[in-house]
Simulated assay, not measured.
Amino acid sequence: MSTVFHMITGAPDPVAPFSHAVESDGWVFITGQMPFTGRANDSAYPDGIEAQTRQVMANLDTVLTGCGLGLTDVVSVRIYLLHFDRDYAAMNAVYASYFAPGRRPARTCIGVSGLARGALIEVDMVARRPAA
Score class of each variant (00 low, 15 high):
12 P>Q: 03
61 D>Y: 02
26 G>T: 10
107 R>F: 09
114 G>V: 07
72 T>K: 11
24 S>G: 04
80 Y>Q: 12
67 C>A: 11
117 R>M: 10
38 G>K: 01
5 F>W: 10
101 P>W: 06
21 A>M: 09
73 D>R: 02
24 S>T: 12
39 R>G: 03
61 D>A: 15
56 V>S: 01
119 A>S: 11
27 W>G: 00
11 A>P: 05
40 A>I: 11
59 N>Y: 05
19 S>L: 10
58 A>C: 09
105 P>Y: 04
47 D>A: 15
10 G>N: 04
111 G>E: 11
14 P>T: 11
79 I>P: 00
91 M>L: 10
80 Y>F: 14
42 D>Y: 14
57 M>G: 00
81 L>M: 06
100 A>N: 08
47 D>E: 15
69 L>K: 02
22 V>N: 05
10 G>I: 11
63 V>D: 02
115 L>F: 01
87 D>A: 10
104 R>L: 09
95 Y>D: 01
88 Y>F: 15
75 V>N: 06
29 F>T: 11
21 A>L: 13
44 A>Q: 10
73 D>N: 15
65 T>P: 03
56 V>Q: 02
53 T>P: 05
86 R>M: 04
69 L>E: 02
65 T>F: 10
34 M>Y: 06
75 V>C: 11
31 T>F: 00
26 G>S: 13
102 G>E: 06
49 I>A: 02
77 V>H: 05
10 G>D: 02
68 G>K: 06
113 S>Q: 14
60 L>I: 13
16 A>R: 10
55 Q>F: 03
74 V>E: 01
10 G>P: 08
5 F>L: 15
101 P>Y: 08
27 W>R: 14
28 V>P: 02
29 F>S: 14
25 D>C: 07
65 T>E: 13
112 V>T: 15
78 R>L: 12
86 R>F: 04
9 T>Q: 14
66 G>L: 04
89 A>W: 04
88 Y>R: 13
93 A>N: 11
83 H>P: 01
32 G>W: 00
43 S>D: 09
113 S>F: 13
98 Y>G: 07
67 C>P: 13
89 A>I: 06
90 A>E: 13
45 Y>A: 02
34 M>N: 08
106 A>K: 14
68 G>P: 08
31 T>K: 01
125 M>T: 05
126 V>F: 12
114 G>T: 13
112 V>A: 08
35 P>C: 01
47 D>K: 13
89 A>G: 04
8 I>C: 05
6 H>N: 05
33 Q>C: 07
